[in-house]
Amino acid sequence: MAKAFFIDTTLCTACRACQVACKQWHDLPAEETQNLGTHQNPPDLSDKTYKLVRMNERVIDGQLRWLFFPEQCRHCIEAPCLEALGDPAAIYRDPDTGAILYTRQTAQYDADAIIESCPYNIPRKGADGSVYKCDMCNDRVHNGLLPACVQACPTGAMNFGERDAMLEMANQRLAVVKAKYPQAMLLDPEYVSVIYLAAFPPENYHEFAIASRTPVGVTRHMALRKMVRPFAAALSRLG
């Protein structure tokens, strides 16, 4: 049975333990950053930053909200990156956990194309040409541990477990949260293994919080099925 995350943004305090715990477990170096007039840092995901708490100040219905969005790879159930690339040596799914995993073989491909294939704009190119992103702490999960980010989370914003259990938890929390935030919703729960609960419309959190719908009303899911095939055929290994 595949695993899933449930990320309840209404409980996130942006302590950013997840961000550091991810680096700690993966032995990732720090980035040299500057204060750009926001507490959020680094500004974006990178080959050294797989997890990033995005922070946005919004006035919604006349009330100030400080919205936190712990962003990471969604480990899509039908992952466009994987399907598009069609090379399990570079991108594959761990059938036990559902983790979408990238290998060094991604360096053999056009990184920008892999990044562009992601509806959530997650993967990033490293200096070695490989493409990097969250690996679900697949090693930990196989050993009965929680992903580092989930374990570090103090408030229960980050959760991890069997997909059914996470969906159930997500729906329960949604019902509770709706009483206070009527616009609350789960973000793309059918398509991803990282299910977010947002109190407000997703665009308030991040441009890529959800995979948007196409203008003709075709869902992303359907669009993917249509698009993936030609893409897979076209995307090829670099020389």
């Binding site: 040596a89 056009d110 194309a113 893409f231 076209a234 090829s236």
Partner: peptide, 21 residues
């Protein structure tokens, strides 16, 4: 912008198709 990849990658990658299965 996410959907542009089809065109872009299709164009740049054409002709060097090597499967690694």
């Amino acid at each position: 912008s996410r959907r542009k990849f089809i065109q872009i990658s299709g164009a740049t990658a054409a002709g060097v198709a090597v499967s690694h299965l």
